[in-house]
Design a protein around this nucleic acid. Structure first.
Lengths: 212, 212, 212, 212
DNA sequence: TATGAATGAGATTTCATTCAT
DNA sequence: AATGAATGAAATCTCATTCAT
């Protein structure tokens, strides 16, 4: 378990509504991105607008709660793969899980792909995820399965890149991302003797949002 | 010249204003994405808001005009490269130009990366660009420089993917996309005997926007 | 005892909650005025919001209950002073107590200073208080300590006026009202031969609130 | 002329609307205080809500504009009275004008009576007004017309205090404030040999609003 | 033709009050 | 009887678009 799960409400109707709300918000954010209005999420959950704000003090908090859940889930998958036998396969599976997370969620793309993020908690969760990616990459690198100059940050960045490569095909070919994941894996594999022309990144620069 | 130039206004001050407007909009959309307000673009162009709507019937039309220009410019670059001696180098140069177009323009990423596009003209321009990409890829494929199952559509999709891979690094390392372009080129190169696990796309499915 | 004490609840925990609630509301209204939310008062009392509405049918009723208590307390002080030896000192002490009540309670200022008041009970309590003020003033007047044309209503009005005079100094000089009380006492004293240019008020015109 | 008049719009319809808006806002704020909604002001002016925000970037700016106008008007009156022959009469007239300003405007009472104020411009205008009050008081003091320990700040504070004294009589006796102004003038007059029991204030402590 | 003023739908958020548990 | 979850009206503010000047 990587993240922390806040307590949440205890009364049964509140628990049920919170669940409905999170589900509705997750679904709506996933399909239409961060721009969906709170009103729509409320309607989709079958509750009043006020109920959303009872459970989450602002739209940003609701969004952050959902993003946190997804980031921690992914970090947990990566952590589990750290003990897999085949580091190459582990990295592939981690990346597959990561790309799929992006592919299935527009809001995730919009929030996580952005270098400036309001929420410290979300930045922290991304950092945790980056650490896991770094470890998985390190193990694959040591076995010569990926080029020596590929970093965990490269891997993290590629998740988003692969999703965006396949994005226009999403409705006609929802699995197309697998093709570009494979292409990327070929790309980071050590087979060619050439070195990459640009130095590798060593961390994701995550800074608080500036007010525009 | 690949695209068509619509008639436009004839009075000289109108011509000048249209030019000012397109420049200002291009600059503003590039820096801040499609979210910039018409008011800001007008101010940036030094004209009134009404003038924007005299030249372009809606914000979407203005945006489309800018996108059309960029798409055609890129298609022209690709067309010129069709007569280059080295097909591999030509493809690389086309991709570099393409990724750079994305990297330098937030609105371009937001509009062109979408699978559903309102404007027939923009869809047509993308189709033309895809044709050019297809020819460039075909030439490289025939020389064995890229895998046999890589299509021009793959190449087009990768442009956006590479930009998005590097996007979070943009402010700290504006040239990082070159690294991921190289990685992608390695990926589409025929060096490994393996075949990709998912069939190649043969066109971009561009459909009109649904009302959200 | 001047006012009437409504029956209230009989179960012991309900009695205790009513007490907690009145205390918390008194404290909170005093510090922050009538704008404080019911939620905050409930939290401050350590009870649920529903409990507030079980004891008081609306926010206005709760507020009125508190105001009633304070008005009656002040009337009791005045009544006690009716039997004091020195009518001038008695009046001064009554006014000091009155101004201090205003000074220490933002909600009291906001409610009692209004010419239009929703609650008949509050209007009645103000009337009772005015009667006491009238008697105290009458005694002082008879002794020549205050001008002949100063009425109890004048005295009542001055309480609020003195508090408001000192209000902007409250945080930097919490006792400043004593200065302006003294000034007012000098003003209502008979020393100058001049008569006031405007006829004295003989009652406070308290009318029910209009719907805004 | 004490304050500065910002340029404002030049087109005739905009000028007219701005005038309508300022008038409507002044009237509405005066009658019902700062709580009136922008929607109501807009309706009262016969314009759309958006028009309010075109002219004033926020509700606070609109309010400030009106307050500034009133404060400067009052300061101008005071400045003119500095050259009057009779310092005592000048002070009386200044105070009468000041109290009347308060009496006629609920918002003015709510804004100016508060020690913490958001707008630097409004604080500055109050400071300017205090300076004028100080000079007028100084002149009266030198002639022995007011007690030696009465300051301009006292005078400023009394304006609000006198208004609040008369406030409950406003509907039944709109001129009642004149009675309490006279009482206050008697109070600050040097006739009694006694000194006030609390030191005089030497400035109004105006601090920026804290977020509550 | 150019301008920028006016519009009003829609977004987020607060809070008194009602009601299921 | 007590709780606090749910509600929805209302407030401020933004912005694409229309229209008077």
């Amino acid at each position: 378990m990587t993240g922390t799960t806040p307590a949440g409400p205890s009364r049964s109707d509140a628990v049920r509504n919170r669940r409905l709300l999170l589900d509705a918000a997750a679904r709506t954010f996933a399909e239409r991105g961060v721009e969906v209005s709170i009103g729509e999420i409320a309607q989709c959950a079958g509750v009043g607008k006020g109920t959303v704000f009872r459970h989450f003090s602002s739209k940003g908090e609701l969004l952050a709660a959902i993003m946190l859940g997804m980031l921690d889930e992914l970090a947990d998958i990566g952590t589990a793969l750290l003990t897999a036998d085949d580091p190459g396969l582990a990295l592939r599976e981690f990346m597959a899980a990561g790309v799929e997370t992006f592919v299935k969620d527009r809001a995730f793309c919009e929030v996580v792909g952005r270098p400036s993020l309001q929420h410290q908690q979300v930045r922290d969760a991304i950092d945790r995820l980056c650490d896991v990616a770094e470890e998985l990459t390190e193990r694959a690198r040591r076995q010569g399965i990926v080029r020596p100059d590929i970093t965990g940050t490269d891997v993290m960045l590629l998740l988003s890149g692969i999703q965006h490569t396949a994005a226009p095909l999403l409705t006609t070919d929802p699995q197309a991302w697998r093709r570009y994941l494979e292409l990327a894996l070929d790309g980071i594999t050590a087979s060619t003797g050439r070195t990459l022309p640009h130095p590798p990144p060593h961390h994701l620069p995550l800074t608080p949002d500036q007010e525009p």
